[in-house]
Amino acid sequence: MSTSEMEEFLTEMADVKPMAKSDTRSSLHKPMSPTEAQLARRQSAQAEQTSEGQGLSDHGLMLIAPEDPIEFVRPGVQHGVYKNLRLGKYQLDARLDLHGHSVNEAKQALLQFIEDCQRIEVRCALVLHGKGLHTTPFKGLLKSHVAHWLPQIPQVLAFHSAQKQHGGTGAIYLLLKKSEWEKSENRERHQKR
């Protein structure tokens, strides 16, 4: 910097005053322990989950019309995989028929079915929930519950209403996560390449 530039700079900066010193540090507090009310709410929520069948909640249930298709896909599921599921292109290795079940019976049967599918390494299954055309007081009650429960189950990657030959809007194709054994088998197969 030349002396003329330096003088010009100092002239421009002559009326600048330093900022007042203030304590600009953020105070970091240790997280407070939960209050008694918070602990009570947590305990109540945990008890409610246990009584509802492994955490499946009916809170926020939206009724679905009997003929409306239902669908769900978790983030990370490839578009092509979901498209093939939606079109019924995967082999269906298991089937669950929920016709004639009460809502509570259906919940337990669905949970047991998914657990069994995981144990015997089923990836794609068919669940027949029916359309609920004859249920009272609401049409499509069981279908609505199934559509509400499945996204709450971590093993479920995706589902979509079935093609007409498999039950149409009265059934769904269900895509499940791979078992730990299948995942390790895949890793080994891909490492050998």
Rank of each mutant, 00 (worst) to 15 (best):
K177S: 14
M1Q: 11
S2Q: 11
H59E: 14
T11H: 09
A109R: 03
H145R: 06
E52H: 12
L98K: 03
K143M: 05
A40K: 06
P34I: 05
T35N: 03
G168D: 08
E67W: 10
G100A: 13
G55E: 03
Q78S: 15
G140H: 02
V103D: 07
L39W: 08
P18C: 13
S144T: 04
L39D: 08
A109E: 05
T24H: 08
T11L: 15
K21R: 13
Q108D: 07
R189K: 12
E48G: 13
R41V: 07
A147R: 00
S2Y: 05
E185A: 13
P18D: 10
V146P: 03
L111D: 00
E52D: 12
T35Q: 02
L56I: 11
A20H: 10
P137H: 09
L176D: 06
G55S: 07
L157Q: 00
G55M: 03
G170Q: 01
K107A: 01
L133I: 10
H190V: 14
E188I: 14
Y173F: 06
M6W: 15
V77K: 01
V77C: 12
V16I: 09
D116Q: 08
D23Q: 07
Q155K: 14
E48D: 15
G55W: 02
K164Y: 15
P75L: 15
L133M: 13
I153K: 11
F113R: 05
G60N: 11
R86P: 04
S4A: 10
F159T: 02
D58S: 13
L176S: 04
I70L: 03
E67N: 12
K131P: 04
Q155Y: 15
G76L: 09
F72K: 04
F72S: 02
L39Q: 13
L142N: 01
A37R: 04
L157G: 02
S144I: 03
T169Q: 07
H190K: 11
D15R: 11
R25I: 04
Q78T: 10
G132S: 01
T50L: 15
I172D: 02
G60K: 07
L98P: 01
E188K: 14
T24I: 09
E48Q: 14
I64T: 03
L92P: 04
G130I: 05
H134M: 14
P31D: 02
S44M: 13
L175D: 01
A106P: 04
P31F: 01
Q152G: 06
Q118L: 08
K107I: 00
K183V: 12
L128F: 05
E52L: 12
L142V: 02
E7W: 12
A147F: 01
I120A: 15
A158P: 04
V156F: 06
D93T: 06
G100T: 06
Q49R: 11
H148V: 00
N186E: 10
S51M: 10
V77R: 00
G80M: 14
E185L: 07
P137A: 10
A45D: 14
L157W: 02
C124D: 00
H134K: 08
G53D: 03
Q191Y: 09
K177G: 08
L128M: 09
S51D: 11
Y82Q: 14
A94Q: 12
Q163T: 09
R74Q: 07
V73M: 07
A20P: 06
T169N: 07
K21Q: 11
